[in-house]
């Protein structure tokens, strides 16, 4: 979970992980396509201040998943909106047309937008900006699995960068169930053949779950195990995010 060390190649070469080989994941002793351990996350990389025009922004890279989030506001709510003595949060998640192996429509992702809204809503102190709206726009540049968790973590970092008051950072991690194994932070290949998944977004310092989704069939002990895995990983992820924020503020001084 350490920050990605910066040995950048001089010229760009696409990362060689998108091979079309279809591995059978049902075998007893399979290894994950990218060679990670089952309970090992991808190296996380965060950088704040990616967009100049926004009040706050962040860029996140988890393996092949690359996301950029910009935050605008607090600014005046649209005229049509009624008076509200607490602030409003408006979230939008969209994919670029080249984010997925098959060229997509590049349109808004409604489900993810709603999920992002609910995941962040509990962490933001909406009372601190009455009558106004904060817009959160997330753009998935490359989809490499666990897109929504990366978007949520990155968005909370962008909110912090914008100086929006929050109770805590929001970190998010998902776990996939593949036959009997629980694998954390799945990549697209793993997500496509998963038997179930848990996604948790939480505020690690307050130890509170803000959003939770489970798909597939789970027994109670397995759910406990999966949730604990997610929560531990969220705590670690939050440390990486915090150090990124600290770095940014140190370099400003």
């Amino acid at each position: 979970m350490a920050g990605k060390a910066g040995a950048t190649p001089a010229t760009y070469s696409p990362s060689p992980t998108t091979d079309k080989k279809k591995t059978s994941l049902i075998k007893e002793d399979w290894v994950r396509p990218d060679g990670r351990g089952f309970h090992q996350c991808r190296p996380a990389f965060f950088r704040t201040g990616a967009v100049n025009a926004a009040s706050g922004s962040a860029y996140a890279e988890f393996g092949n998943t690359k996301v950029i989030v910009s935050v605008f506001g607090p600014r005046e709510s649209k005229k049509a909106m009624l008076y509200s003595d607490v602030g409003r949060l408006n979230c939008n998640v969209s994919y670029t047309t080249f984010a997925t192996p098959v060229r997509g429509q590049g349109s808004d992702h409604k489900d993810y937008s709603a999920m992002l809204d609910k995941a962040l809503g509990g962490a933001i102190i909406l009372e601190s900006f009455p009558k106004t709206t904060v817009d959160v726009f997330a753009l998935v540049l490359e989809s490499g699995g666990s897109d929504l968790p990366v978007v949520i973590s990155c968005a909370s970092l962008a909110l912090a960068d914008a100086g929006i008051m929050m109770y805590d950072l929001v970190a998010s991690v998902s776990v996939s169930c593949l036959s009997k194994n629980l694998v954390i932070d799945p990549i697209s290949e793993e997500e496509n053949c998963q038997d179930g998944s848990i996604m948790i977004t939480c505020m690690p310092s307050r130890y509170e779950i803000t959003q939770l989704t489970v798909t597939g069939e789970w027994s109670t002990p397995k759910i406990n195990e999966g949730m604990q895995l997610c929560l531990d990983a969220c705590a670690k992820l939050a440390k990486v995010m915090r150090s990124c924020l600290k770095e940014a503020s140190d370099s400003q001084d």
Partner: peptide, 24 residues
């Protein structure tokens, strides 16, 4: 008695132990 899906509504946070209680 297996769980087939969980969705959370409302954005107020919940303690993980409460979620587990709710499941049982």
């Amino acid at each position: 008695g297996h769980i087939c899906g969980i969705t959370k509504r409302g954005s107020v946070g919940l303690d993980p132990s409460i979620v587990l209680d709710m499941i049982s």
